[in-house]
Design a protein around this nucleic acid. Structure first.
Length: 422
DNA sequence: TCTGGGGTCCTAGGACCC
DNA sequence: TCTGGGGTCCTAGGACCC
């Protein structure tokens, strides 16, 4: 047990972020049931729903067609990722005035380590209200702020502060605050874990806290032990243990695409793999990562999904190599002609740095690097659709020059608790 | 009701080595 | 030639998050 004074962590969460941003661009949407994420007859899920739409049971991660049935009068809006990024940057900027330790956890939520800022900003509740007001004047958007001694408590309390509120859990009161909450309110406890806990008679976080740590570890392994800590408000295990604002390199980079309609057309499938490979390669180069493992993801009509991975002798960040492996994996596993719903390409197992320049064919390698850098540059200037390796040009991408609503960074997650409220 | 796209973390089995 | 034990790497799948 550490004897250092408790930390003061803020978790700030924008209220109905995508919907609120859309309202700024079209004020006529205000107060109406609005669904962001795509049109009512499209294949896809709800990225965000306005509070008016939520009254009908619509929630994030729900299929758009389901939302349309629950709330026929809802207005369906395509997402605008660039708008959300723009407003996310504004949010980030405001936060920077309150603490140097800021971490955007996604487009619409952030952690701040406010420990030791009392001299400058005053007591936590006071500074939180100032932050809340500053956010409103800078962005015209509402947010909610949770304050606690850990990321976990801050996050749970911001959820309880919604909408448009501030909630401070006093140091030492963590267990008391959490005890009456449903176990599903703990981040990381989803539908499956919730059911398992219910099955052994655990409904509330307080029930969990009364259990023996070793018992939980025995039942649920590593996760059980983390869960025991969480029930007391500790940042036990995994990502939660990182310092706020600490830089963490990504562990994988991937892209996937769900077809508007399932297709068994080999040319179309290959061109999709090409495009996905290019997108992955591009991001590897931007980040300076070399991937040792490439993975193909394949989903059929019936939603059955397989992944097939392959590790390389020589790490890569080059489109053509990524495509070669993706294509090989695809044809080795695809039931020929079977309609495909989704394809994905993912790179992982990174070795950053320049130790893996191909020693076998340096000249060829260098030509490729130059060609790809030039292509990246052209894309920067003229947009993603302006260039592609030969195969990428053939297939089904011309249709996607418009903003694709399916490319939204998601809200969502479809927790059991969401479904139950529905 | 027919299920997006971006990720992280964990588990478990098999290969392989000592 | 019936069967050990630990460590590490690889792969596949699944829960979970926004």
């Amino acid at each position: 047990m550490s004897t250092s004074p408790p930390r003061t962590i803020f978790h700030l969460d924008m209220d109905a972020f995508f919907v609120s941003v859309e309202e700024l661009f079209d004020p006529s949407l205000k107060g109406k049931p609005v669904v962001v994420g795509g049109q009512r007859d499209e294949r896809g899920v709800v990225s965000a729903a306005s509070y008016a739409a939520r009254k009908f049971g619509v929630h994030s991660a729900m299929p758009l067609r389901t939302a349309a049935k629950l709330c026929p009068q809802a207005i369906f809006v395509n997402g605008h990722p660039e708008r959300y990024r723009e407003y996310s940057a504004k949010v980030h900027e405001v936060l920077g005035h309150f603490s140097p330790l800021v971490e955007m956890a996604s487009v619409d939520e952030a952690y701040l380590d406010m420990t030791g800022t009392e001299r400058l900003h005053g007591r936590p509740l006071h500074s939180a209200h100032r932050l809340h007001d500053a956010m409103k004047s800078a962005t015209q958007l509402n947010c909610s702020i949770g304050i606690g001694t850990s990321r976990l408590v801050a996050k749970v309390s911001s959820a309880k502060a919604k909408p448009n509120g501030v909630l401070w859990v006093l140091p030492g009161e963590e267990a008391k605050f959490l005890a009456p909450l449903a176990v599903g309110d703990i981040p990381g406890v989803g539908k499956v874990m919730e059911q398992k806990l219910h099955a052994i008679g655990i409904q509330r976080v307080g029930d969990l806290a009364r259990l023996d740590d070793r018992d939980l570890e025995h039942r649920f392994g590593k996760w059980g032990l983390a869960l025991a800590g969480k029930s007391r408000g500790e940042d036990a295990g995994g990502w939660f243990d990182n310092e706020v604002g600490e830089h963490v390199d990504p562990k994988s980079i991937g892209h996937e695409h769900t077809f508007d309609e399932d297709t068994g057309d080999a040319e179309r499938l290959q061109s999709t793999l090409m495009r996905l490979s290019e997108m992955v390669g591009r991001r590897l180069r931007e980040g300076g990562y070399f991937a040792r493992t490439l993975q193909l993801k394949l989903r059929y009509q019936d939603f059955s999904t397989i992944t097939r991975a392959q590790s390389l002798e020589q790490p890569t960040q080059m489109d053509n190599q990524i495509f070669d492996h993706a294509r090989r994996l695809f044809f080795a596993n695809w039931k020929p002609g079977a309609p495909v719903r989704l394809l994905g390409v993912q790179a992982s197992n990174f070795e950053s740095g320049s130790t893996q320049l191909d020693l076998l064919e340096p000249a060829q390698n260098e030509r490729w690097q130059k060609a790809l850098a030039a292509a990246d540059h052209v894309r920067d200037k003229f947009g993603e659709a302006s260039i592609g390796l030969a195969r990428g040009m053939k297939g089904g991408f011309r249709e996607r020059t418009h903003e694709n609503p399916a490319a939204l960074p998601g809200k969502g997650g479809g927790k059991a608790s969401d479904a139950k409220k529905a």
